[in-house]
Amino acid sequence: MVTPPEASNLLEVRGLTVCYDTAMLLNNVSLSVGRGELVGLVGPNGAGKTTLLRTVAGLVRWEKQSKQGTRAGNITIAGEVRFDGERIDSLPPHVIARRGLVLCPERRRPFTELTVADNLMAGAYLQKDRRALRETLDMVHQMFPVLKQRARQISGTLSGGEQQMLAIGRALMTRPRLLCVDEPSTGLSPLVKKELFAKISEINRRGITVLLVEQDTALTLSVCARSYVLSHSRIVASGARQDLLADQTVHRSYLGLQSP
C-alpha cells in the first residue's frame, strides 16, 4: 500500500463517520491526498463517495445546520478533516472554498439560467485581482475552447459534456489548491469521457491537486497513480494502480474489471 508522507498531505480525512437519521453513509473512513497528486476514489453506486466529498467540502454540516429541527436535519458527523494541516470539519462551505478546497459537484449543476460567461465569473467570485482573473479565464478558455465560443449562451442549453466542462471550468476559476471532482463521466459517451479524463490529467499536470470520484473504475485507474476503493460506506482497498490491479479479490469484488 502506498501512503504519501504526512507532511506533504494536502487533505487528511481521519475516521469520518456520517449518519443520515439511522442510515450510516460513511463508516470510519480515512484517506489522504498528497500535494500535487491525482488520487482516485472508486466504488459502486451508493457506496458513499458523494457523501464523502460533500462532507469534506462542508456541505453535510451546512445541511445539518440549515435543516435543524426537521427529520432531514437529523445528521451525525464524526471524525476529522484536515486541509493543509488545518482542521476544516467545523468550517462553513464558503470558508472551506476560500481555503482552496473546491468541489465540482455530481450532475454538474451549472447555474442553468445564467450564461456560460456568468457561470465562470461566479466561479471567480473570490478573485479580486483582475490580472489573475484574466489569466485564469484564459487558461480555462484554452483548456475548454467551447466555453469561449459559447460564452453568451444560457448554460442550461449546453450538452451534457459541455456542461461538465463548464462545471470544471467554473471550479478552476476559483483557483483551487485541491479540486474534488464528483462523477464527471456520468451520462457521457465513451469518447467525451476519454477527452474529459485527459483534461483532468492536464489540470493535475498544471499543478492542481485532484481528488477524482468515479464509478468508471477502468478509466479512473488509467489516470490516477493511486486510488481508494469505497464500498458499503467503508474504504475496502487502497493503493497504487498496479497493486489494485494485481489484487484478485479487489478485482472481482469491487472493481468489476476483467482480470489482467
Partner: peptide
C-alpha cells in the same frame, strides 16, 4: 451575480466561496 447565482443554487454558490 452572487445574488443571481444564489437564487439558482444556494449549495453551489456556497462551494464557489459565496457567503449565502
Amino acid at each position: 451575480l452572487a445574488i443571481r447565482a444564489t437564487a439558482q443554487d444556494r449549495e453551489i454558490a456556497n462551494v464557489m466561496g459565496m457567503d449565502v
